[in-house]
């Protein structure tokens, strides 16, 4: 059958694309829209490296079909910094050395941003459970948690 024609908003911009039914949103982002910041670690929703928000809701883009997102709003890591200014989370991740290899970093940042939008002052435990779907094999999570806590504090101060 013919490909699906889909129109959506990605990082504030209108986009349209064609996709097969079995192509995931992650496939579309990476292969069709060339937004390779979202990473494929497992394709089963177990690692969180492909995290994006869909109408503001945090999801794994590997668990969403491309053809499902017609008319919807998607935010990816590429849309996180505003102009030349890094998001406070991005800045704190750098300052706290919260990344080593960096493959999981986009997913952690997108997930952390979704957390702080809902809960500006999360406890360490809340952060850890919110981010439990984001695997990191390098850092032992310690510096990631610190960076999120620090960013939350900075964002509360405005």
């Amino acid at each position: 059958m013919a490909k699906h024609h889909v129109e959506a908003i990605v990082n504030g911009d209108p986009v349209e694309f064609l996709c097969e039914t079995e192509e995931t949103l992650l496939d579309v982002l990476r292969d069709t829209l060339h937004l390779t910041g979202s990473k494929e670690g497992c394709s089963s929703g177990d690692c969180g490296a492909c995290s994006v928000t869909l109408d503001g809701r945090l999801v794994c883009s590997c668990l969403v079909l491309g053809c499902e997102v017609g008319g919807r709003t998607i935010e990816t890591i590429e849309g996180m910094a505003k102009g030349e200014t890094l998001h406070p989370l991005q800045q704190r991740f750098l300052e706290h050395a919260a990344l080593q290899c960096g493959i999981c970093t986009p997913g952690f940042l997108v997930a952390s941003k979704a957390l702080l939008e809902r809960n500006p002052n999360p406890t360490e435990t809340e952060i850890r459970y919110w981010l439990a779907g984001n695997l990191c094999r390098c850092t032992g999570y310690d510096k990631i948690i610190t960076a999120v806590q620090d960013a939350a504090g900075a964002m509360r101060k405005g």
Partner: peptide, 19 residues
């Protein structure tokens, strides 16, 4: 504790990994 020179690319999704 300097900021890593490859850092900005890694927090913005620019850094290019194998795939």
């Amino acid at each position: 504790r300097t900021i890593r020179p490859d850092g900005a690319d890694k927090v913005t999704g620019r850094a290019r990994f194998g795939a």
